[in-house]
Structure formats: C-alpha cells, structure tokens
C-alpha cells in the first residue's frame, strides 16, 4: 500500500510530526520579539549626499585604539550609547540580533559606549543582558558624541563601504526587523567581496 504513495506525500509520516512540533516551537518563538520601539524607516534621516564623518578614535576591550578607517570597505552601523541611558539599553538586544543578521553581508554593528567607567561598566552589562554578537567598544571621554555633535543618545550612524555617513538615527529603533535590515542593506550597498564573486 505504501508503495503506491507518490513521493511528496510519502514523506508524511515522521517528518509530519517533526514538522508540526517544530511549527509549534517556531510559532511561539517568533512571537517573542514584539516591540514598542519605532521602526527604522520612521527614525532614519538619510544623509544625501553622503558626508565624511569627523575624526575620532575609540578603544577596544583590550585597550587598542581604533578609528573608522580600520573598518574601511565594510558597512557600519555605529551606535553611541551608555549603560545609564534607558532608551539605549532598550535597543541593545535588537542591535545584538542585527549584528548576527547583517554579518553575512559584511556589515558590522559598532556600539561605542561613552560610559566613563569603560570596560568595568560595559562588560558586566553584556553579561547580564546576554549580548553575544557585539564587540565591546569604549569611549570614556565622549569623543565620539562630541565629534558628531549629537543631540543626545542613543544616536546611530549608517556608514557605507567608502567610509561615508549615509544615514543618522536618533532614539531607539527595532533594528532587527526584516524591514530595517533591508533598509540598512539598501543604504550601505552590496559587499565589495560579494560583488567580485558575482561579477
């Protein structure tokens, strides 16, 4: 009897139950990230024509000095934040999820903390908030915020592969939504290495 069952339906048995189980699990998991935050498209101010960012430097967790030039060729989401800033804290999980989802497109998320205690404040924060995909970047002197003359934090900058600012975002947004990722990819453009591969 089973022999007469054509291919697509014959798969039915175990995979049906496995699939339904997975469906349950996924359905519940997808539901988890409901958010009251603004969408990226609402908060985004495009910078057109793109501008060259001011010069500033920041430190890695090991104390190494870096500037944006160290990331030339990659798309960047530069986020200025602090552990004492509620709206910043609210969007950190979304930024963390964003980092994992845009990594394949050669886009990096760089959260620069202006906490004065630096690593001592940021490292425990990453632990208690389960931040897994973001680097620790520190600017205890607030150079970044001053250089960009930001109104307040969080403020984020989208930087294209040529190191130019193509967008700014004030306030927390739902960074990890499909729409936000499409917007970021659209503004930053395709990866240079991807281009060479396909072309």
């Amino acid at each position: 009897m089973t022999g007469s069952v054509p291919f697509p339906l014959r798969l039915g048995r175990r995979s049906a139950i496995a699939g339904l189980g997975a469906a349950c699990t996924l359905a519940a998991a997808r539901r988890a990230r409901a958010s009251d935050l603004d969408t990226l498209s609402d908060a985004l101010e495009q910078v057109n024509p793109p501008t060259i960012p001011p010069s500033f430097s920041f430190q890695t967790a090991t104390g190494a000095r870096q500037t944006l030039a160290d990331y030339r060729g990659r798309g960047l989401v530069l986020n200025i934040w602090a552990t004492w800033c509620g709206p910043c804290v609210a969007e950190m999980p979304a930024l963390d999820a964003l980092a994992a989802r845009v990594a394949p497109f050669d886009i990096l998320v760089l959260p620069v903390s202006i906490d004065q205690q630096g690593l001592a404040a940021v490292k425990p924060f990453y632990g208690t908030h389960g931040i897994a995909h973001l680097p620790i970047l520190l600017d205890p002197d607030g150079d970044v915020a001053r250089a960009f003359k930001v109104q307040g934090i969080p403020t984020s900058f989208l930087v294209d592969r040529f190191g130019r600012v193509v967008g700014t975002v004030e306030g927390p947004v739902q960074w990890d939504s499909a729409g936000a990722i499409a917007t970021i990819r659209g503004l930053i453009g395709p990866g240079l290495s991807v281009q060479t591969q396909s072309g």
Binding site: W84, D115, R146, I153
Partner: peptide, 14 residues
C-alpha cells in the same frame, strides 16, 4: 556614575 561622566559624553554647547 558621576555627573562629570554625563557632561563628558555630550557637546559643551549645553
């Protein structure tokens, strides 16, 4: 968390 820290982060225009 000091007051100086808050100042440090942002523009002096304030």
């Amino acid at each position: 968390m000091t007051c100086r820290e808050m100042l440090a982060g942002l523009p002096r225009s304030l």
